[in-house]
Simulated assay, not measured.
Amino acid sequence: MIDRSAPAPAPALPPDAPGPDPAPVLSLNGVHQVFPGARGDVPAVAGVDLEIRPGTALCLVGESGCGKTTTARMAAGLAEPTSGSVLFRGRDIAAMDRKERSVFRRAVQYIHQDPYASLNPVRTVYSTVSAGLRRHRMVADGREARRVTAGLLERVDLTPAGDFLDKYPHQMSGGQRQRVAIARALAMNPEVIIADESTSMLDVSIRVSLLNTLGRLRDELGVGFLFITHDLAVAKYFAWEGEIAVMYLGKVVEHGRTPRVVNDPAHPYTRALVSAVCEPDPDLARTKERVRLRSADIPDLTDLPPGCDFHPRCPLYAPGACDTLRPPLVRGHDRLLACHVVGRG
């Protein structure tokens, strides 16, 4: 039985400047995802609250297996939460009728991690990108579909578009394939794009170029982004004017404006992630503080430790508090934080 009871609202981030923020297009309210397993239930996501607003980027950061992709799939309506709710324009997607669901499907688009698996190998670029246009009758005929598809390819820097329209995925590089996937998402005039590690399988130079393209589309089209990554350097580059939510074992442990989280990380786990980012300047690399964890082993989701999930690895571990009570995610003066030891004032 899926619990649809309304959870308590998440604490809001402190505003950066006077004036109200735009209303969120997509919201996750206390979402949980529990998978049954041979050794017991696996709480992949345990109460996550996120908001994606127009023209802004929210990066969800954490180690592999922390629940980022599961959260993204729930946000896109590809997986139903065990409890909690996903709201699109304030409407619970689980309560939508067929027409509302169709609008949601067009407005929230998903870019997968693997550019080699996300495209149908027997379809041309034109067929792939124009499929949604034709399915939702957004074009009058094949000639218009081809013209619109060419325009979408040019928007994602696949030029000249005529060189790509009739190609198959195996005839393109990984970066070109991922641009085709972006063009396919843009064809639906989305309000939100969920990018799940969409640059992690690309070379660094191609990665930066693709991030620049996504950033330009965000600014020009006012698209909101939920950007999933394990790399804080990528999050810093793409969402410098946005927000970062740091996830550990299915829970958000720190959430704030990107410059504050990256330049002054508060949670010990965030500090460890920041310290692991490669520093290109040799002088800064030599003087950079390294955070040493008490253990490299990540707890098993089927046998989580009492208290704070991070305490077996935490260098700031305080007996009697960290191993007894689970810290709630509460609002400090400049971020949301879940930690017994680090001050929130």
Rank of each mutant, 00 (worst) to 15 (best):
H230D: 01
R146W: 06
M138S: 12
S173Y: 06
Y317C: 02
G242M: 06
L119Y: 14
V125F: 01
V108C: 01
T324L: 03
P20T: 09
G62W: 12
R134T: 13
Y237P: 01
T128F: 08
G174A: 05
P190D: 13
R147P: 08
P280V: 06
A296V: 12
F88P: 00
R73C: 09
C66D: 02
S173Q: 04
D92V: 14
Y317L: 09
A117S: 15
N212S: 11
C308G: 10
G62P: 02
V34G: 09
T258C: 03
I298P: 01
V25N: 01
G174R: 05
N189K: 14
L165E: 00
A195D: 04
T159L: 11
R290D: 02
P20I: 04
V204R: 14
I206L: 04
R331V: 10
I52D: 02
V192I: 13
R286N: 03
N263Y: 01
P115Y: 07
E191L: 03
K288W: 02
L325K: 15
P115D: 02
E191I: 02
I52A: 11
V274S: 02
V34R: 13
V156T: 03
V342L: 11
A181H: 02
D166W: 05
P54L: 01
S85K: 15
D16N: 06
G37K: 08
A38K: 13
V86M: 15
R53P: 07
T128Y: 08
A285C: 06
P259A: 05
C308I: 08
T258R: 00
C59T: 03
G343V: 07
A239E: 12
D16Q: 15
C66Q: 01
S173R: 00
R98P: 01
E80D: 14
E254C: 01
